[in-house]
Design a protein around this nucleic acid. Structure first.
Length: 112
DNA sequence: GTCATGACAAAGA
DNA sequence: TTCTTTGCCATGA
């Protein structure tokens, strides 16, 4: 088995590194992986993250606008918002308040 | 092997 | 300023 670190695995790794109460964007993760323009792949990876173990905090990953674009993919549409608020992130109208304040850039926090 | 889709992002009009 | 279009790369049929 090649065990080659695929794009998905990288996304899961970074997603799990997101501190509690923080959020990041698909583009930020993509940029950290070296493919800033492949933000779509990050979101696509999240789609498969549901079957990944350990669980991937996909609820901490939102689009560049801080909007819970992926909430619709959770078990329940409210699950994502509930989880975020539970961690201290205020969500209003499917959008994170003070998004820039909660924003966590792996490219900055992890390494440069 | 080819076509179509996807939880995004940046640029152009 | 908002809306529209293109790019990106991997997965599935």
């Amino acid at each position: 088995m090649q065990q080659e670190p695929g794009f998905f695995d990288l996304v899961y790794q970074v997603a799990r590194l997101i501190p509690k109460g923080r959020v990041t964007s698909y583009g930020a993760i993509a940029a950290y992986l070296g493919s800033a323009k492949s933000a779509r792949m990050v979101g696509w990876a999240m789609n498969a993250a549901h079957q990944q173990k350990p669980k991937v905090p996909a609820h901490r990953v939102v689009n560049r606008n801080g909007m819970l674009s992926g909430k619709h993919h959770f078990v329940t549409s409210d699950a994502m918002q509930q989880l975020l608020e539970k961690e201290g992130v205020k969500v209003k109208d499917d959008q994170i308040l003070n998004f820039t304040k909660h924003f966590w850039d792996p490219r900055k926090e992890l390494s440069l």
